[in-house]
Write a protein that binds this DNA or RNA. Sequence first.
DNA 1: CCACACCGATTGCATATCGCAAGCAGTTGT
DNA 2: ACAACTGCTTGCGATATGCAATCGGTGTGG
Lengths: 121, 121
Amino acid sequence: MDEHRSGCPINLTLEVLGDRWSLIVIRDIMFGNRRHFRELMTLSDEGIASNVLADRLKRLVEVGLLWKRDNPAHKQKAAYCLTESAIELVPLLVQMGAWGRRHMPASPELSVRAQLLEEGG
Amino acid sequence: MDEHRSGCPINLTLEVLGDRWSLIVIRDIMFGNRRHFRELMTLSDEGIASNVLADRLKRLVEVGLLWKRDNPAHKQKAAYCLTESAIELVPLLVQMGAWGRRHMPASPELSVRAQLLEEGG
DNA sequence: CCACACCGATTGCATATCGCAAGCAGTTGT
DNA sequence: ACAACTGCTTGCGATATGCAATCGGTGTGG
């Protein structure tokens, strides 16, 4: 993304994270302790397609939300890690969880985590 | 959208708001004091297309984030208003503004509003 | 040494959504 | 009557998405 639609902070955040998958990937790395491509693809309930996951990982690295750590022992098992910018998305994800918990048909077991974070985990 | 990808609160929020325009519309109604179709289309910096705006307004009404108030004096000038659910998105928008202000090239004049909200406006 | 399972990632293809421009019918002000 | 304005629709090319199959490179067991 080269040109921005506007300089509004909310809009700029939307330009980076405003799609159906980017925050799912970040959520799984952040709270689900997933680092590798196959983990992110198969272990999450939503079922992201491999081409979409590859595209999102690439874009999130490009915009500085993730970085790729090579594993010298296992060259194929590169790990995707959160940058400081991504870690600072925690309050945003907490608010998203809190809103979804109150206004959408969230499943009880998955709501617990959101509730704990909301109360200050 | 009939079936949900998962019961995770974050995912459910993304299913409703995870696109480039829904939160822009809500932002303009919430903070920009815009109620009418033409206002939302022409007065915002990002420049939403009319068909996309029509689609988003319809969907946001369907999911219960907006409601349409008829104007008896001006039949053509229907006003779109926030529901209670949408008003409770304020903390989420505040967090989006805060993150964008810190990590994206936000313009100074538009950042002021975000900063004020962040500090508790 | 070699077959095989696994790794991240790519390709092809059908479908859905997007951005843009033009235009619509109904309503309002003069 | 007429022009300006209302919310909204249509056509169309470009782009994004979802799905399945597959790729070349890498580690492993026999």
